[in-house]
Structure formats: C-alpha cells, structure tokens
C-alpha cells in the first residue's frame, strides 16, 4: 500500500513501512550516511541519517534508514537539531578515527573540527558493519564478523586468525568507507595479495586477484562488483 508523506515540504508517495530514506531519495533530497547500503538490510548504527519526524503529534529524531514511513508523517531532513546531531556524530567519529580523510572532509563540510574533545584514538574502523553485512548478505560467506561489546566492539575474524572460509573476493575493501581493510601484497611473492584489517587477515586470493581472467565463479564476482560499483557512483 502506498502512503503519502511530507518531506521538507514536498509530498511524496512511498510504500507503507518503507524506510523514510526512500522518500528522501524520491524527493531528490540528499541524506548523509555511513552504514547504509541499498543492497543490504538497514542497520542503523551510524545514525548520521537522522531526520526529524512528526508523527501522531510527537516530534522526534529517528534514523531514516530504518524508520518505517506511515500515513500522515511529516519529515524534516535539515533542521537545526538534525544538523547539530550530525555534527556531533562526525565530531565523535573524528575522535575515534582522526586520520580518516572521509571523516575529515565531512567534518569540514559540517563546520566542525577536532577541538572540543581532547582524546585521540588511532582507529580507522567506525564499526559501520558494511563489510560484515556485505560478506554475509551479498557474498554469502560470512568470513568476517563483529566481536565483543560496548567500547570493545570490533570487526574481527573468528579467533582473530586468518579466516578459512574467505574467498578473497575483496568486496570488503571496496565497500569499507574509511579504507581500513586493505589488500596487501605478500612480501615474498608480490603477486599473492591478501586482505588485512588490523590484526585479522583474510585468505589470499588463489588467483592473485586477476579477476578478469579468473575462472572461479566468474559470474558471481561480476555481480558483486556491479553492486559495489553502483554504490560507489551513488556515493559521489
């Protein structure tokens, strides 16, 4: 069933229960995100996509990537409260990952720096979970996962050892928004490249990532690359 919602003054028709970010897309309104990907189920961890919603007379901030649209809903994507909250998120992320260029650019765009919080960590991963979810939902392998909880939450392979199920497709390096998963060459045999992320490593590609000539499930990889390419072109 289609419902009408008002987003930044525009009336948009979308499927009832669809995430309200869809309405924004339809209205041509840009909403910044770090953990959202069309090919994946909504996750809602970065909260950068928050918008202000008035529903049943209540006004509140919700994450647009997973909040279901309903009849009579009014959405504001660029209020002072929204901008302030997004700025705080980027600011907090910059404390966590001060050297990630993407976050530095975002901070600049939002008019904030590193000034207010004095700590500086040396992380690169923002725990958006894109690599984990892509590996599981699209690639269908689940070689990397999440581990621990609270402030210790991290992306990791089981027992933090080289995964024995990784197929070396490289999707995680492509989808990672901060570039913290890297494809590195083996020092002894430069042709043999493997994926590294902090302490975890994934298996090297049996065909040294010569994907063009690769015979292993050629179609499968093509599909993945297409999804990623689409995503990247949209993000820019």
């Amino acid at each position: 069933m289609k419902v009408s919602v008002i987003i930044d003054g525009q009336m948009v028709q979308i499927e009832q229960g669809a995430p309200i970010i869809d309405a924004a897309k339809k209205a041509g309104i840009f909403i910044p995100t770090l953990c959202y990907h069309e090919a994946l189920k909504p996750y809602g961890s970065c909260c950068l996509c928050i918008v202000e919603v008035i529903q049943d007379g209540q006004r509140r901030l919700v994450t647009s990537c997973n909040f279901p649209a309903a009849v009579g809903m009014e959405i504001f994507t660029n209020t002072a409260r929204v901008r302030q909250s997004r700025r705080m998120i980027v600011e907090l992320l910059l404390v966590r990952c001060p050297d990630v260029p993407l976050l530095q650019t975002m901070a600049k765009q939002m008019g904030t720096g590193l000034s207010r919080f004095k700590t500086r960590e040396a992380n690169e991963c923002i725990l958006c979970g894109l690599c984990v979810r892509f590996c599981e939902e699209v690639v269908g392998v689940g070689a990397i996962g999440l581990a621990n909880r609270g402030v210790d939450r991290e992306v990791a392979t089981p027992f933090k050892m080289a995964s024995d199920v990784c197929i070396g497709c490289g999707s995680c390096t492509y989808i990672c928004p901060t570039g913290c998963i890297k494809m590195v060459s083996d020092r002894k045999t430069p042709n043999l490249r493997s994926l590294k992320m902090g302490n975890c490593s994934l298996v090297p590609c049996p065909n040294s990532y010569q994907c063009e000539t690769c015979q292993i499930e050629q179609e499968f990889f093509k599909d993945i690359k297409r999804v990623i390419a689409e995503f990247r072109s949209k993000g820019q």
């Binding site: 689940g142 070689a143 996962g145 999440l146 581990a147 621990n148 990791a156 089981p158 027992f159 199920v165």
Partner: peptide
C-alpha cells in the same frame, strides 16, 4: 552455523571465556 556468528556470541556475553 557460521563460526563468525559463534565467535560474536562467545565474545559478546561476559559469561563466556575463551
């Protein structure tokens, strides 16, 4: 059951020790 899922659960809950 995927080992990554098991590792996630085993490290998430404080009752477990590896």
């Amino acid at each position: 059951l995927n080992l990554t899922k098991i590792f996630d659960v085993a490290t998430f809950y404080k009752a477990f020790s590896l």
